[in-house]
């Protein structure tokens, strides 16, 4: 699935990283706890979250993620977007709630991580 398809499925708005919409992402995770993202996520390239602070972008950076989606209509500030841009990360915002947003992506084939 491409980041552009993520945008369409989530009725999302692209806040930065327009040039990355053709990039492919293979899996996703959703969490408001960055501690858990750092501890449990391995290869996900999309992070869905309702938390808004710069550490969301930092966490995604450390995990080599390509795309952050803010759910529930949350809006990052310009400093967060600048940080995302500096790490070639696409940032989207969707009015959908977390459960629905994750459900739409999962249903369309973007899976989470297998427990092993």
């Amino acid at each position: 699935m491409t980041i552009g398809e993520v945008r369409t499925l989530l009725d999302a708005r692209v806040l930065c990283g327009e040039e990355m919409l053709e990039q492919t992402v293979l899996s996703a995770c959703g969490s408001d706890m960055m501690s858990d993202v750092l501890a449990f996520v391995k290869e996900q390239s999309v992070l869905l979250t309702g938390l808004v602070n710069p550490q969301v972008i930092r966490t995604a950076e450390m995990m080599d993620m390509r795309c952050v989606v803010f759910v529930r209509g949350k809006m990052p500030d310009e400093a967060m977007l600048a940080l995302a841009r500096s790490h070639d990360m696409a940032v989207l915002t969707t009015p959908l709630r977390m459960y629905t947003a994750c459900g739409r992506l999962y249903e369309a084939g973007l899976k989470g991580e297998d427990l092993s």
Binding site: M33, L38, L51
Partner: peptide, 26 residues
């Protein structure tokens, strides 16, 4: 895992789940 002295204010920032040190070790 899960043991933490973090305050609610820290949890509101997305941290303090008691996963930091175990994750560093892992």
């Amino acid at each position: 895992e899960g043991w933490s002295t973090a305050t609610d204010a820290i949890r509101d920032l997305g941290f303090g789940a008691g996963m930091g040190l175990p994750n560093m070790k892992r």
